[in-house]
Structures are given as structure tokens and as C-alpha cells.
């Protein structure tokens, strides 16, 4: 009997939780704010779902009842992606070592 692909995805999910657990514990506390802003940015990879949804509309009716939600989601996720990565960049650029 074949294994349901869902089980594979579940395995990836569970293993990623563990990876996340160990990686995040190694983040230095002084960078916890950039951690939050960068996790914000990467969770906006949800934009891939939004793009598929938006492009599912046909050419006669680009904004149909389902694709319009895709477009709106693209808008929101894009704010987050650009805003999240750039504000993280801006913060990280400020962390400097003592001049010896």
C-alpha cells in the first residue's frame, strides 16, 4: 500500500518544528526583535498561494469572486515581505561592535 502524500508533508512539518526549535534557541536575545520581523517577512511566503489564486481567473474576467481574494492577499503579503525584510535590514545595520 502506498503512503499518503499527506503523511510526507506531516513529516516535513514535524521535523521543521524541531529545526525551528533548535535554531530559535540559538538566536541571541539581543536580536529577538529582528527575529520577529524576519519571521513576519518569511511567513508571507503565503504569497505563493495568493499568486496561484489570482492567476486562476481567466482573461475575460480577471477579477472574479475567487481571484479577487488572491489579489488582495498579494497586496497584503507584499507589504509584509518588503516591509519585513527591509525593516529587519535597517535594524541589523544598526548593531555595531565597540570601536577598538
Amino acid at each position: 500500500m502506498e503512503i499518503d502524500p499527506f503523511v510526507f508533508r506531516l513529516s516535513i512539518f514535524i521535523l521543521s518544528i524541531f529545526v525551528g526549535y533548535y535554531v530559535v534557541w540559538s538566536v541571541t536575545p539581543s536580536l529577538h526583535t529582528p527575529l520577529m520581523s524576519v519571521t513576519n517577512a518569511i511567513s508571507s511566503v503565503i504569497i505563493v498561494g495568493a499568486i496561484i489564486a489570482a492567476l486562476a481567473g481567466n482573461n475575460e474576467n480577471i477579477f472574479n469572486e475567487s481571484s479577487i481574494f488572491g489579489f488582495l492577499a498579494i497586496l497584503l503579503a507584499a507589504i509584509n515581505i518588503f516591509g519585513g525584510f527591509l525593516v529587519t535590514q535597517r535594524m541589523l545595520a544598526m548593531y555595531k561592535k565597540k570601536k577598538k
Binding site: 508533508r9 516535513i12 512539518f13 514535524i14 521543521s16 518544528i17 529545526v19 525551528g20 535554531v23 530559535v24 519571521t39 513576519n40 518569511i42 511567513s43 511566503v45 503565503i46 505563493v48 498561494g49
Partner: peptide
Amino acid sequence: LIITGALV
């Protein structure tokens, strides 16, 4: 998305 979701 699954990996990112789990990480975040």
C-alpha cells in the same frame, strides 16, 4: 509554506 509555518 509548511516549513516556514513550522519555523515561525
